[in-house]
Amino acid sequence: MTTLQAALSGALVGGMFAVMAAGLSLTWGMLRVINLAHFGLILVGAYLTFELATSWGIDPILTIVLTVPLMFLVGAGLQWAFDRLGVEEFASLLVSFGLLIIVMQTVSNVWSADFQRMDGDVNPYATESVSIGRFVFPAPTLIAFVFAVVIVVAADQVLRRTFAGRALRAFAEDRTVASAFGIDHRRLGMVLAGLSAASAAVAGMLFALGNAVTPSTPFEWIGMVFAVVILGGIGQVGGVLLAGVLVGTLSAVVSATWSPALSPLVLFSAIILALLFRPYGLLTPAARGAR
């Protein structure tokens, strides 16, 4: 019973990790940028939600009306710089590692290194929950899951059905050929990176809704989120949701049945196994990926 409850809650929490991972997975797969700074953007998103709700009294969910456009610009600008400076896949990992550290330290200088959590009067969602049968789900995780489904389905449809989506997939497959067919990868890349950063703003809001946040919180996300990205298959946005649910469930069940401290151990062991046997994602057989 408690295990089942934990599994279901974990699955919902996995939705939040899917939102965090979606943008990372897409920019890695499509633009060959491994953007560790994505975690910095999520962190800033969480703090902005906290600040806007606390100081200005805006409903926490509605803060994304402000944070999403802002983050879009930041993400697009970052991609512009990466493109202009010719930062390649591996260098992007290092450059964005530097940026992540800068963001985390700046956040710490601005908001202090202490935990910050929205008070109950500005964040009505924190204390609410929904009961379905014998199971109880906290509102923040339910909201996160709904956002996850909406974002992932929307991204998947855009990639499949729109011209820009097809152009991006063509670009990811073969840059030279795609460019020869007149695909303006610069602009598309900036739009994609912008949208990815915008999703980071949403992820930050979702995290702040149910959790206290400190400047070093990204360390807790990195492992979990990369697990989701790799298990889901790099660049495969649909796989991200599946992997998010899987990782969230696994982690919650391990926490409930053994010990919360063991859950990272199980999780990272799972990533290592996945890297060794399914390096191209759960949905892609190793043989196909290798070609």
Binding site: S96, F97, G98, L99, I101, I102, Q105, T106, S108, N109
Partner: peptide, 12 residues
Amino acid sequence: GWNLIVLGAILA
């Protein structure tokens, strides 16, 4: 408070 910022900037 600037230690890590400087380090991150140097790397980037």
